[in-house]
Each structure stands twice: as structure tokens, then as C-alpha cells.
Nucleic acid binder design. Structure first.
Length: 301
DNA sequence: AAATGGTTCAACCGCACAATG
DNA sequence: CCATTGTGCGGTTGAACCATT
């Protein structure tokens, strides 16, 4: 079970790092000695959400000041974009998302924000973390550099086909959206009904040979490199220690129509996206279907 | 039960660039 | 132009969590 809100554990400073030079400049007229760092509290989150709901986002330094937050503008921006923003998706990275990340990274490298543009609701930070904690970890276990040809081959010939296989397998359990995967000498073609996805449109230099692809589709996670490739999709993002109720009980009215903090009530009809932040777990699963992949293909063309 | 080591991910930093005046 | 301020990005950190001993 995934939850939208993680835990709040600290109400004080965790870090006493020096302040970013730009932030220092930006806050010279403020009292930067009061600047707070470290984890955001529930109160701070609602102050920020309140302020943005009323005044919009942007101009983060002045926003931080006028909202009364003892934070840098940068910190407010980051908190909003990576966490509080209503359309931030949380929870498991789906198979389709994993496939996209691998493909787009092979095309653009560490252009996290660019990659994130193609994964709605995912932040560059989250994708970067996924890459570092999952993909780089695999490279480490294979005892090869993440940028080496050896590892890239492993990605292309083993990992990605395995993902495609799993996507196909999961689609087979849904008879309304069956996916077929065919391979040519040059690329993989994913189809559902009359639609076609040609992976060459996504990653021009990613080719799969018949031999490589067929071998991986029949040997599951075993592979010819001699090292076990763990199944990334099974162990990611499983630890969300705080129940959503721990947060929601504070905020959501018994009817679910309003939530409130500090005496300010929010009309669910006008801020339903914010409530969705706490309530909607269902959105997270199967968001990317084959039609979305087709849409992506069109966008990339 | 306690210690230790590994993992995760939110938050930070420094820098580059854009916008503004 | 130049200086200042604001924004965005990629890399890095470290507290909390988890697994193992």
C-alpha cells in the first residue's frame, strides 16, 4: 500500500549548513538568521499551500517572506514542486514508467527534468533517485560502470526486454488492453489492437536482435551475463511508514467536504486536487497504459 | 536486544542562466 | 552594458528506516 504522505519526524533544524550564496543575497533584507532548514513541518506545509492557493506560485523569495515562512524561496519552491503540488504522483514506479526512464535516459543521459516531462506527476528528483538507487545499484552489483558499454548492453538486451515482457504479461491479464510485442532486426514493435509503437521513435539507437530478445523472454530474470538481475519493479517504493490517516485525520472533515488547518477551511470543490493529494491512491497504479505510450510516441516525433 | 551496515529519498548545495531594473 | 535577483538543474548529503548479525 502506498501513501501520499511520508512522515514528519522533526520539528527542528537538522542541518546547519551554510546558506546558498544566492539565497543569502536574496535574503539580505530579511533576517536570514531565522532561516529554517531541514524537514518541513505540517504547519509549514499548510502555510505554503494556503499561500499558493490564495496568491499563486512563483517569485519564491518574496512568497516565502509574505507567507511568513522562515525558509528560503528555493526551499519553498522545491517543497511545492516535489511534494505539495497537487499533481505529484507518489508510489510505485510502474513498469511502463521504468521502461520510459531507461529509454529516455539512454537517449538524453542525466537530463532528469527533461525525462520527468514525459512522466506526468513524477519529479526530476524522484527519477534521479530511482536511477541512482535502482539502476546504479545494479551496475554496482554487476561490477561495471553505469556508463560502460557492458552495462548499457545489459540494460538494452536484458533489462528492457524483461520490462517489455512484463508489461506484455500484465496486459494479457487485461483482455481489454492486450499488448503484443514483436521484434525486428532493428527495433521492438509494441502493438495493441491496430496501434503500433515503434521503439525506434523513442530511442533511435536501441536495437534488439532476435537472439537477444528471444533468449530473455524465456529465461526470466536469469541472464547470460552470469549475474542475477533483480526484478526492479518488485522492490521499489514499498516503504511508506506513515498512514495517510496520520495526516488526513488532522485535515479532512468527517464529511470529506472540507479540510482545515489553523482555522482556515478549504472547500473541497475548489481545492479537490489538494485533497486528492491525501486521498487518492488509485491514481498511482496503471496510469501509463499503452495508449499513453502511443501519445508519448506522437509527442516525441 | 543491541549493534552494525546498507538503502531510501527529501532536502540541500553550487552553479548556470534568465529576468529585471 | 552591468549588477542584482530569481529560477532551474544536476549532484550530493544525511536522517530515518530496514535488514542482518
Amino acid at each position: 500500500m502506498d501513501h501520499h504522505y511520508h512522515q514528519y519526524v522533526e520539528f527542528g533544524l537538522k542541518r546547519e549548513d551554510s546558506i546558498d550564496s544566492n539565497d543569502r543575497k536574496g535574503d539580505e533584507n530579511n533576517n536570514n538568521l531565522d532561516l529554517k532548514r531541514g524537514s518541513w513541518t505540517v504547519e509549514e506545509d499548510f502555510t505554503l499551500m494556503n499561500h499558493i492557493a490564495l496568491h499563486g506560485e512563483g517569485r519564491w523569495n518574496s512568497l516565502a517572506r509574505s507567507a511568513g515562512l522562515k525558509r528560503t524561496g528555493k526551499s519553498c519552491r522545491l517543497r511545492w514542486l516535489n511534494y505539495l503540488r497537487p499533481d505529484v504522483r507518489r508510489g510505485n514506479i510502474t513498469l511502463e514508467e521504468q521502461l520510459l526512464i531507461l529509454q529516455l535516459h539512454s537517449r538524453w543521459g542525466n537530463r532528469w527534468s527533461k525525462i520527468a516531462q514525459y512522466l506526468p506527476g513524477r519529479t526530476d528528483n524522484e527519477i534521479k533517485n530511482y536511477w541512482r538507487t535502482r539502476v546504479q545499484k545494479q551496475a554496482k552489483q554487476l561490477k561495471c560502470d553505469v556508463n560502460s558499454k557492458e552495462f548499457k548492453d545489459t540494460l538494452h538486451y536484458l533489462w528492457i526486454p524483461r520490462l517489455v515482457e512484463r508489461i506484455q504479461a500484465s496486459s494479457n491479464s487485461n483482455s481489454n488492453n492486450q499488448v503484443n510485442v514483436q521484434q525486428t532486426n532493428d527495433n521492438i514493435i509494441i502493438t495493441n489492437n491496430n496501434n503500433i509503437i515503434n521503439n525506434n521513435n523513442i530511442v533511435p539507437n536501441m536495437n534488439f536482435t532476435q537472439e537477444n530478445y528471444s533468449s530473455t523472454t524465456t529465461t526470466s530474470s536469469e541472464n547470460s551475463v552470469g549475474t542475477q538481475i533483480s526484478d526492479m519493479s518488485d522492490n521499489c517504493y514499498t516503504n511508506y511508514p506513515l498512514n495517510q490517516g496520520d495526516y488526513g485525520e488532522i485535515l479532512i472533515s468527517p464529511t470529506g467536504d472540507y479540510f482545515q488547518h489553523g482555522g482556515i477551511f478549504y472547500d473541497n470543490n475548489h481545492h479537490q486536487n489538494m485533497n486528492q493529494l491525501f486521498l487518492d491512491d488509485n491514481v498511482c497504479d496503471n496510469m501509463w497504459n499503452i495508449d499513453d505510450m502511443l501519445f508519448l510516441q506522437q509527442q516525441l516525433n
